[in-house]
Design a protein around this nucleic acid. Structure first.
Length: 585
RNA sequence: GCUAGCGUGGCUCAAUGGCAGAGCACAUCACUCGUAAUGAUGGGGUUGUGGGUUCGAUUCCCACCGCUAGCUCCA
């Protein structure tokens, strides 16, 4: 591939090609150093590349350095990459001869009419569809780094061979690699597990793996978030309920969870009857709907629930607040007639837009379609998928299709928010469901006086309150906007003489509903400022003799901005405005 | 669950087959100070848990628990 201006590293296709060729260089280096290692697959990914290999020994950091050095050599050798094709039987023989069983399996599984192509660079040849750079000399050896080595299952199947995956990253310039590594370091600093500990938000203990404890400051954050959630939902016409955490087996059989979700459910026996702790809120919600008759005039009926659910996740999947075994879903079920579906979905997306914009979070939408393990007919699924598609298309929103990833009861729209590490987290979801109303025989009386079956959506905006708190902790690097900050104002008396004035000021702020603390320790003002800044408290009020005399407070932001002395009333007005507007600064 | 690595005061981290240490935090005392760390003194640890090897284990070995990275799965 020629390296002219159309093939800049900014171009995603060129970048993928560059990284893909890097993965071949990686494989070549490993084969030179360790001929016994068997090669599996080695693609480019969003950030860099990897190669899966079957090795009789683990790749230690020292070995990775050796491999990296060999890769640099290969780049310097400027080996030409040459493509050639072979018919299936010759291709198989070629890889069998080289002792590459994984490649043989890949060839075997290629479609009948597939072109089987290879890329050769020096003594090394790999099965590959391409494309590739024209020479290993195109790769900048000193801007290349192997970043990790981890386990991966052959073909992503946990019942098959565990392979070792070597990850790498590469750029055309050394400073771009340095900037990338710098960015990873920065991201580590805002890891919500670290900040959660430093800021006293939550903790995890060996006694309850995956079951987070919320500490006073984290609880304030969570409650403030929920206050906002309730206000928004009230505006959009929702009512709120709460359903039990544990319900009997019969209910879960009726909902389908006992058959489709049991491996993730915590169960127990009470008075010889099987019970399950709810992994989802829907069945309880169905019982509430079914508890009284409904008219078409009530629809759409929007019923919200902050529901605590428990799911038995694999121990290796647990990750701070991002992946836990018990969490609160900001759930809601909207019951409606079939012809209200499009409107309700659009209204829900508008609600999502409103909420996400408050946090300054961007998202992308994924449409997940019928999985293998599903209930309901194919026609119904297609019809429902089209309703979702049409609703968002009409709003001018883009989406990608995630084939076969729907819930077992219906297709869904997933909203993926981006975090500071560039990872995306599924938070919001809108799931269409005509199955549960059927199973629970939900009804409403139509205009015609006849009984009809409603349809419903399950939807969450924040997804899991816990995960969302993790996401925004990283997003804001712990410096929450004033409306959310667990402590909004810290009052810092300069000397003991200002202690009384500090307390009076604190009381006034408290009476106006602000969250305030006083740092009355016998420490220098510099130290108090330093610590309040590290605690990421939005506003510091320094009060000393001068302020007492002039009846002022000296205002400083956590950013270091010194707003100077002002009356408490001016400060109150400023803070009130910032909190009401939910300003991000 | 799988593969690899890790587990030392509240936190961040040293050290060693032979008396377990530092900084921060905490407590006490002095200092009363105006925008990112005042000083001194002191208390605090069965080195994740249980076994084993050894004269002696925090260090070596085994099992279990938990954590980290990734795979798988997912809000």
């Amino acid at each position: 591939m020629p390296q002219d201006s159309t093939f800049s590293f900014e171009n995603p296709e060129y970048r993928a090609t560059y990284w893909h060729t890097c993965s071949h260089v990686l494989a070549q280096a490993v084969k030179r150093l360790f001929p016994d290692v068997k090669l599996a697959i080695g693609p480019s990914i969003d950030e860099g590349f990897y190669y899966d290999m079957d090795s009789p020994f683990p790749f230690t950091p020292e070995i990775l350095e050796q491999i990296e050095a060999e890769m640099r050599k290969i780049c310097k050798e400027k080996l030409k990459l040459e493509r050639f094709e072979l018919p299936r039987d010759q291709a198989t023989a070629f890889m069998e001869e080289r002792g590459e069983p994984y490649k043989v399996e890949l060839i075997h599984d290629l479609p009948e009419d597939a072109t089987i192509s290879f890329y050769k660079q020096g003594e090394f040849t790999d099965l590959c569809a391409g494309p590739h750079l024209d020479s290993t000399g195109r790769i900048k050896g000193n801007a290349l780094k192997l970043t990790a080595c981890n386990a991966a299952y052959w073909r992503g199947d946990s019942s098959r061979q565990t392979l070792q995956r070597i990850y790498g990253i590469a750029f055309p310039k050394k400073d771009e690699l340095d900037a990338y590594l710098q960015r990873i370091e920065e991201a580590k600093k805002r890891d919500h597990r670290r900040l959660g500990k430093e800021l006293g938000l939550f903790m995890l203990r060996d006694e309850g793996p995956g079951f987070p404890f919320f500490l006073p400051k984290g609880m304030t954050l969570k409650n403030t978030l929920l206050d906002y959630w309730r206000a928004v939902h009230k505006k959009y016409g929702y009512v709120e309920i709460s359903t039990p955490i544990m319900l009997n087996r019969q209910l879960w059989e009726r909902s389908g969870h006992w058959d489709h979700y049991k491996q993730n459910m915590y169960t127990t026996v009470i008075d010889d009857v099987d019970f399950a702790i709810k992994p989802m809120n829907c069945p309880g919600g169905m019982l509430v709907y079914a508890s009284e008759p409904h008219s078409y005039r009530d629809l759409p009926l929007r019923v919200g629930e902050i529901g605590l659910v428990h799911r038995h996740e694999l121990s290796g999947a647990l990750h701070g607040l991002f992946r836990v075994r018990c969490f609160n879903q900001d759930d809601a079920h909207v019951f409606m007639t079939r012809d209200q579906m499009q409107d309700v979905i659009q209204e829900t997306v508008r609600l999502f837009d409103e909420v996400y914009s408050v946090f300054g979070l961007s998202y992308s939408i994924e449409l997940s379609t019928m999985p293998d393990d599903h209930i309901g007919t194919v026609e119904e699924w297609e019809q429902n998928q089209n309703i979702l598609k049409n609703a968002i298309t009409a709003m001018g929103k883009d989406f990608v299709i995630n084939e076969g990833d729907g819930a077992f009861y219906g297709p869904k729209l997933d909203f993926h928010l981006s975090d500071s590490l560039g990872r995306t987290w599924q938070c919001g979801t809108i799931q269409l469901d005509s199955q549960l109303p059927e199973r629970f025989e939900l009804e409403y009386t139509g205009e015609d006086g006849e009984k009809h079956r409603p349809v419903m959506i399950h939807r969450v905006v924040l997804g899991s309150i816990e995960r969302f708190i993790g996401v925004i902790t990283e997003h804001f690097a712990g410096a929450f906007p004033a409306w959310l900050a667990p402590v909004q104002v810290k009052i810092l008396p300069v000397t003991d003489r200002a202690a009384l004035y500090a307390n009076t000021t604190a009381n006034q702020l408290d009476q106006h509903g602000f969250r305030v603390e006083v740092d009355a320790r016998n420490e220098k003002i510099g130290k108090k400022i330093r610590e309040a800044t590290l605690e990421k408290i939005p506003y510091m009020l320094v009060v000393g003799d001068r302020d007492i005399e002039n009846n002022t407070v000296s205002v400083r932001r956590r950013s270091g901005e010194d707003l100077g002395p002002m009356t408490l009333d001016s400060f109150l007005a400023m803070l009130q405005e910032e909190v009401t507007q939910k300003t991000i600064r």
